[in-house]
Amino acid sequence: MKDHPIPAEGHSGPSADTNLTLQEMVLESRDIRDFLAELAVLAASRLSVTGNTIHAGVTVLRRKRAEAVAASDAPARALDEMQNGFGDGPCLTALRTGSTVLVPDLTAERRWAPYVRAATKQGVCSILAVPLDLAGNAEAVLNAYSGRSNGFSGEDIATVEGFAAQAASSLRLAVRITQLNEVRDDLAAAMQSRMVIDMALGAIMAQNRCTRDAAVTILIEASNVRSIKLQDVAAAVIMNISGETDMAGPFGE
């Protein structure tokens, strides 16, 4: 995971530089979870100022179940997981309503009492939760925790909301790239299967001096009799003839 420097004093709103950073993260991340981890670290570093270190996490809602999928550090992950354990809190409320939730002072907060008491014991004084609009792909929320009361100003809220909008756009791109990679992998698997079957048919035609249609019939009958997949029968045919044990071929990368 890359290090994103913490500003010495103050911070500015989302910029073209931030958007470029997020796009680079999409291209360099191994998967969605890796991207979200980088996002949490970046969010924490951009929000943190001298005397007010921010911890950030990302929670995703899948099949009505909340999961803490990424965090800038251990405290942020613990706080996200704790809230998910209680099943309610400011971050889950933001996630469910699709609206920003700010808790400026946990000691004065009367909602979500069990979680608030637990979070206060962990040194949390204020919380900011901003939902990420993923356009139906999933529901997610960017959570920020401060050890100071009124740890988030109005400018901070605007900054985080703008940052979250850019992050959501990049995350949709990451989801799209993941989907394209899955399609590529499926296509590669299909091409591998077709290659193996074609090789087996050629071997059967040569051995039996028969037509391709006849070879197809032989292969299908063998598959039915043995109750195994056609590709597996084809692979067995080739291995029996050539002694090959690795059928990965050029499409097995």
Rank of each mutant, 00 (worst) to 15 (best):
G151I: 08
A188Y: 07
A190H: 12
R176F: 08
R148S: 13
R184H: 13
N143H: 13
K121W: 03
L95K: 08
S99I: 07
L92D: 08
F163C: 00
E109C: 07
A118S: 15
L128C: 07
S146M: 04
D185A: 14
A144R: 05
L106A: 11
A164W: 00
K121A: 14
A190T: 11
G154Q: 13
R96P: 00
C91M: 12
L106Y: 12
V141N: 04
A189D: 07
P75T: 13
V124W: 10
L171P: 04
N143Y: 04
A78S: 13
N137G: 02
A94L: 02
A118K: 14
G98M: 02
N143E: 14
A78L: 14
Q83N: 03
T107K: 10
A113P: 13
M191Y: 10
E109Q: 09
A118Y: 14
A108P: 00
E161K: 09
R172G: 03
L171A: 05
L180Y: 14
V124S: 11
G87D: 02
D73M: 07
V183H: 15
A94F: 04
A189F: 00
E81V: 07
L128Q: 02
P90Q: 09
S126A: 05
I177K: 15
L79H: 08
P90Y: 10
L106E: 10
D80H: 11
T159D: 10
R176C: 01
L142I: 02
S126N: 09
Q179P: 00
G87L: 05
D80K: 11
R176D: 08
N143L: 03
T97C: 04
I177W: 12
C125V: 06
D73Y: 12
C91G: 05
I127W: 05
A135D: 15
P75N: 14
P131C: 03
S153K: 10
F163P: 02
E182P: 07
A189Y: 07
R77T: 00
P114G: 06
A144L: 13
Y115C: 08
M82D: 01
I177E: 15
A78Y: 07
A138R: 09
R77E: 02
A138P: 05
L92N: 03
A158W: 04
Y145G: 12
D105N: 12
P104T: 01
R117M: 09
A167F: 02
A108K: 11
L134K: 12
N84E: 09
T178C: 06
D186N: 09
L173P: 00
G89W: 11
A168C: 04
A168K: 07
R110H: 06
E81A: 11
G162A: 04
I157H: 09
A135C: 06
S169E: 09
R110G: 00
L173M: 08
A140M: 02
A118G: 08
D88R: 14
A168M: 02
T107R: 12
A74G: 01
L134A: 12
M82Q: 11
R172D: 00
E139L: 05
V130Q: 05
A165N: 11
L128T: 02
V175W: 10
C125W: 06
V101C: 09
A118Q: 15
V183E: 15
V101Y: 00
A76S: 10
